[in-house]
Design a protein around this nucleic acid. Sequence first.
DNA 1: GTAGATTTTAAACACCTGTTTTAAACTGGT
DNA 2: ACCAGTTTAAAACAGGTGTTTAAAATCTAC
Lengths: 210, 210
Amino acid sequence: MANAQPTKLKILDAAEELFAENGFSETSTRQITKKAEVNLASVNYHFGSKNELIQAVIERYLEVLVPNISKELTDLENNNPNPTLEEVFSVFIRPILSLNQQRKNGTSILLQLLGRSYTDSQRHMRRFFLGNYGDVVTRFVALVYQAQPGLSASEIFWRLHFTLGTVVFTMASSGALMDIARADFDEDIAIEGVVKRLIPFIAAGVSAPR
Amino acid sequence: MANAQPTKLKILDAAEELFAENGFSETSTRQITKKAEVNLASVNYHFGSKNELIQAVIERYLEVLVPNISKELTDLENNNPNPTLEEVFSVFIRPILSLNQQRKNGTSILLQLLGRSYTDSQRHMRRFFLGNYGDVVTRFVALVYQAQPGLSASEIFWRLHFTLGTVVFTMASSGALMDIARADFDEDIAIEGVVKRLIPFIAAGVSAPR
DNA sequence: GTAGATTTTAAACACCTGTTTTAAACTGGT
DNA sequence: ACCAGTTTAAAACAGGTGTTTAAAATCTAC
């Protein structure tokens, strides 16, 4: 069995960048293989099809992200008997920002991918996500309820989906938004700055009076 | 000049439905003309190109929506010297809901289109929007600032974009969300119910302490 | 060094894309 | 009834798509 990593990795790296920048169907296998400097046929050889490549690109991120979020949830569950909503939402901060350490612009790329895949096919994506990472979702919802016990299950459902929309949409266009903020307000913030502005917004929204 | 409306209208109706359902680049002119039961060449004859058709589909909505929002803003400006944030955001309620009267699922279609066009090409869409409807945006932002004078321009910018994400994402998937709510919580709410839950959420987010 | 499996390569495949062309069919006004 | 002007129609265009093929190159282990 020869070393199969180099080309496979080169394809994943090139594909994720093009997917995030231009979208899935706007990116052709020829663009990917050209950028990766590999042969056209190698996408189908290594991944089977373009669709399986898309899935592989997303899964490569989730495989490292979700366990990290799970660890943060465990920490909170064990060490903080009464976390605030902001503390609950903050479980995402470290895992998301640490993506930037293992891959340049990892945060922004992942969230653009998530945004694209979610608007491209919410149904498929939702099923995949709940199927593979359902327990993390459950534990997170339980913490939200604990921090805001006045909320009914249905209110939590709605407000967390509002939150999902806020995050996915914001992060998917975070690059453009940061550019505008730089131009219009002389405000040179990185992705951390966006996240730090986002958390109070969604915490206030989720805990809004009814 | 002969009556050019029928085919042009049939194309717009078919296109907007396919665009909202499957996305712009996933929808081909052949799908559109087949659904509209017109000749393939008529898209290019009547609109010039597929891109101009996309623009025409979106503009048809905005042309009726934005003037209605503008009227609501005028009402608020004239009759309510100190509106709350919730009252400011409520200027969207009537215009958006009235879309459902002139076109079945009009609300959901428009917001799916907005969501798609915004994530597909934020830059182009933003420029178009500000170029054509910039004064409505300005007046709305002024009312937000008046209701929440503590916020800086940059904070308003960020929080209104968070809000945009919440609204677009929620409305784009409102159909699926209402289905889930019905199945999981025996909660049969219509689009008005979603809007009424949305407003307190975004009002609380925009007025969050910093 | 050679045999066997794995990977890379160039070429072709079958199909779909947006758009253009050219001729035919309509239209309303005189 | 005829004649612009406008709209429709079928066909073709040039180029791009994901995928497959079959041969060449490379690698691994004996």
